[in-house]
Design a protein around this nucleic acid. Sequence first.
DNA 1: TTGTATGCGTTATCAC
DNA 2: GTGATAACGCATACAA
Lengths: 353, 353
Amino acid sequence: MEKKATIKDVAELVGVSIATVSRVVNNHGIVAPDTQRRVNDAIRELDYNPNTVARSLATGRTETILLYIVQEDPIVPTTWSYELPIIQGINDYLRGKPWDLQITMCSNIEFRQPGFLNDRLNRRSVGGVLIMSAWVVEGHTISELEKRNVPYVLIGCNDPNRESPSVEYDNTGAVQKLVEHLKDQGCEILGLIGGDQYQLHMRERLQGFELALAENGLSLCKRLIKTGDWSVEIGYLRMKELLRAHPKPTGIVCGNDYIAVGAMDAIKESGANIPRDVAIVGFDDTIVSQVVTPNLTTVRVPLHQMGMLAAERLDRTLSNPLAAVGRRTVLPCEIVVRESSSILWDRKDAVEV
Amino acid sequence: MEKKATIKDVAELVGVSIATVSRVVNNHGIVAPDTQRRVNDAIRELDYNPNTVARSLATGRTETILLYIVQEDPIVPTTWSYELPIIQGINDYLRGKPWDLQITMCSNIEFRQPGFLNDRLNRRSVGGVLIMSAWVVEGHTISELEKRNVPYVLIGCNDPNRESPSVEYDNTGAVQKLVEHLKDQGCEILGLIGGDQYQLHMRERLQGFELALAENGLSLCKRLIKTGDWSVEIGYLRMKELLRAHPKPTGIVCGNDYIAVGAMDAIKESGANIPRDVAIVGFDDTIVSQVVTPNLTTVRVPLHQMGMLAAERLDRTLSNPLAAVGRRTVLPCEIVVRESSSILWDRKDAVEV
DNA sequence: TTGTATGCGTTATCAC
DNA sequence: GTGATAACGCATACAA
């Protein structure tokens, strides 16, 4: 096993000093075209690659980005579909850039603990931090980051009232679109079955719901708003409750696709028709929304794009610490209309047949 | 912004040399209990944390593990459900250990290119490598790794005939269980709809299928074996073909749950009953298997455990390069029986009603 | 345009 | 038990 070539080896081979080699490697300072060529030849010949560790020590900079993935406590293999596309977005942006991506998963509880981030940041040497979470990142965590002066970007977990650098998606707007859509289809009494209301997404979706009802002249009935968790089972149970309400809701907004699927089971069981008697919409555009019968209207969240944007933002502040790179970015979501809420289409179709 | 305390600061505060501080930090050599205490006090007082970069430079070792996630080309946000649970397993094992986890995603095509890994390994400084892929890792890639003497563990992508350190799951055995189960339920003519046959998993499942048919005295009919990709659509199309076959298959093994869902659509459309006329089983135990009607019998792959084991294996060779840590590990899968293949139960139920 | 020399924060090998 | 001090591989201020 041969040793790796160092800058010294290259310098000796060419007959110059290591300073010169360093210059051509980093495109720093001025170096004669001829020397440049000779150095590059030697680099190729020796298969020289700068030692990242030594470089970091010398410069005080480091080329790694740390991605925190905050999850439910306890951490269990999850069906949550957000992480991977976001990671992929980050990774895609980072190709060709010098940054390495380091990731660590931790529980929501852990992450909230004061000093948690500090501890981690002490042990490693990190250029910048990305935080991906379903819960609002607390003020003291932000303070830790800013006190240490380490650049960061939040992904989907910024406090709505805080101007930290973050990439979000428009939960409120998405729900507004859903409500408008349901109203267009003729639904007048709307209910909502949400997931974990401690999660930021859900809180925003709830707000969006109430807002949209008001804007569309629909009446808000607190009894038609249910929460719980994100499971199929909860969807089923809560929907059964809603079906006992008077007046019965004719349109249901669900916190995610799984809840919607559970709710659909309850509706079918009651003998009601989807969408004619009860229209229903989900969230996340997971594969189940395409697979259930009838297909589920849902919301497509621009996850990949969020990852790309977050990485880009961080890259820009890291490359140029003085650059003001904006604060909050909120991406719009697209709603995907399918059978579960297509009442007008359903009627037309019925007539044609 | 204060500078971080260094070993020198600690030494000065205590009035000892940096060598002594280094000794107590690393539990190396002998140091007087009293000095030890004073040093520790100073460390706490100054909030000293050893600089990882400097340490790496000095020792020549590094504390990062690189995880390669190899994906379909082009890389797109995927619905593949394997990555996250495996990553979580790796992460869970790594808690408390000194290793940092660095990940990078790349396409299958990229990864196969000779020199690809070498390039990456040159630029970074990496302790060990994990490779997670659906395609067999080629010999030249293994050679690169071994030539550089960097420890590695393959996850689900070892050549069946190669004794490289790897963690796999028992595709063949899983399919055998499925076939046995279908036979127990009274199915005599079995068909298979597979996914991408260039992927290792699929090849093994195909082999398992043919093997199991022979073992169970069932006849193998090549015309009843179809492949394509892993999508719902392919499942639908291939199943329509199978329904035109004579004799018609009465049991279908699908490459994954999505294919199975598509196939179920085709079966329902034909007016046949699931499971009585055609029983069907999927693979992966994704949420769709619980959501379709009837529920889908499927295979649960021990993803989290695979991640844990792979990380453990790598950790062990990294901690003790001389340790022989075994080679191939193959984990059994569990089959989850649900309605889509429960013919006996279905009959009994019908009688009771 | 190039070379010399110092420092980055540790570890580890000697002496004492 | 402890303290100098030489690596580790590179960047860079300063000289030349």
